[in-house]
Amino acid sequence: MVGDKVTLEIHREETLEEEDSVSKFLLIFFIFTISLVANEAQDIIKKLDENMRGENVSMKMTMRVVSLSHERTMKMQSWSEGTKKSFTKILYPPKDRGITFLSLENQMWQYVPKIERIIKIPPSMMLQNWMGSDITNDDIVKQSSIVEDYEPKIIKKKNTLVTIELIPKEDAAVVWGKIIINIDTTTYTSNRDVFYDEDGEEVRQFIYEKVKKFGKYYIPTYWRVQSSSKKDNFTEIILEDVEYDTEISQHYFKKSALKRFSR
């Protein structure tokens, strides 16, 4: 809508010269409002992102993976700092206990105590499901992109609920056609992210519930990842013991941590 008006104004400026000054004013006015609106969307996304990660964050997660015939539960603890560093350790089930993951910049390593090996995850494995869930390795490594890679636009506002459409920037290396996020601006948390492909068809959803406040940050403590084509399969994540902006030892973000914190 807003965009339409701008082109209209530009058009008028070209044809009706006597209204030059008026149209110029209008033009400036509209550009101003657009940038304001864009900034608003940008701000919301930034705040949302801040809420999700803080300066740094550590938490315990319980992940329940449900696929056609069975369900599995995993527990893990994770530490992350900013967008580029994160460390995760599996606590449960016993057979996977002690498996650790480190992602630094755009690289990802995994340590498996059973085989006592550190394995670097190659690009060909990045779209594999992480630990058999509906989350890919790629989701974990590229958490940052929501702010940097997308152009946000508010498409609906209803009280404190804002619907934002994220369109990937021209050269952003993301596969989605768009993401639509429903954000509650009282807490700056999302209750639903819907991922679409290039043709505008829904591919998967993230559903968030049970927003809680930890320190100055709000975060949903229940997440559900649902693939749109396989309705019976989903992954649930429950967050516990979330701690923001604490002293996280830099030792976690070194390759040596993989083995060291495995135990």
Partner: peptide
């Protein structure tokens, strides 16, 4: 006109993607 994302390791071993 379709978009693709290609991921591979660069010479330093980092996995990079490009649109």
């Amino acid at each position: 006109g379709s978009k693709l994302v290609f991921s591979t390791q660069d010479i330093s071993g980092e996995i990079n993607s490009m649109a």
